[in-house]
């Protein structure tokens, strides 16, 4: 299984509402993760402006030497992104699945306030399950 380092969820105004490390590499403290989230939010917005083609929905993949960053933005403006090993496959499918988990276990939680940091245990549990599943299972989805 290729490694996923971390997962971020940003609300539509660019605030980090969820951050979790998976694995030992690439850990960040709270300040760095917040910085990273707002940086990504801005870069994403800038990329939409830079694109020569209208209707561009922003960066979906950033490839670096030591990691890949896959981003998915829902039509409501919430962004989900994972940082993973270079070349990790099926991340679009995973992000889509995480979006479904978010709608089920975060948005349906009556005590979750919209746009606020996510503190939902069920979401955490389901998320770890989804991320630990091997990529074959994700592919067959």
């Amino acid at each position: 299984m290729a490694a996923i380092y971390s997962l971020y969820v940003i609300n539509k105004s660019g605030g980090l509402i969820f951050y979790k490390d998976y694995g030992s590499a690439g850990r960040m403290d709270t300040n760095d993760s917040l910085r990273m989230a707002s940086l990504w939010h801005s870069m994403h917005a800038i990329s939409q402006q830079l694109s020569p083609i209208s209707g561009c929905s922003g960066i979906e993949l950033l490839q670096a030497d030591t990691f890949d960053l896959h981003c998915f933005q829902s039509l409501t403006g919430t962004k989900f992104f994972v940082v993973c090993d270079p070349g990790t496959q099926h991340m679009e499918g995973l992000l889509k699945h995480i979006y479904e988990l978010y709608t089920d276990y975060v948005l349906k939680n009556p005590f979750y306030e919209m746009e606020m940091p996510i503190r939902c245990e069920l979401f955490d549990i389901k998320l770890s399950q989804a991320i630990q599943k091997d990529s074959v299972a994700l592919l067959s989805r």
Partner: peptide, 21 residues
């Protein structure tokens, strides 16, 4: 910057990526 790399280029149609290469 590679042109539109990693971004969806057009509304209709689908973005494809085949592995890393």
């Amino acid at each position: 910057m590679t042109f539109g790399y990693g971004t969806r280029l057009r509304r209709r149609g689908y973005l494809l990526r085949c592995g890393r290469q």
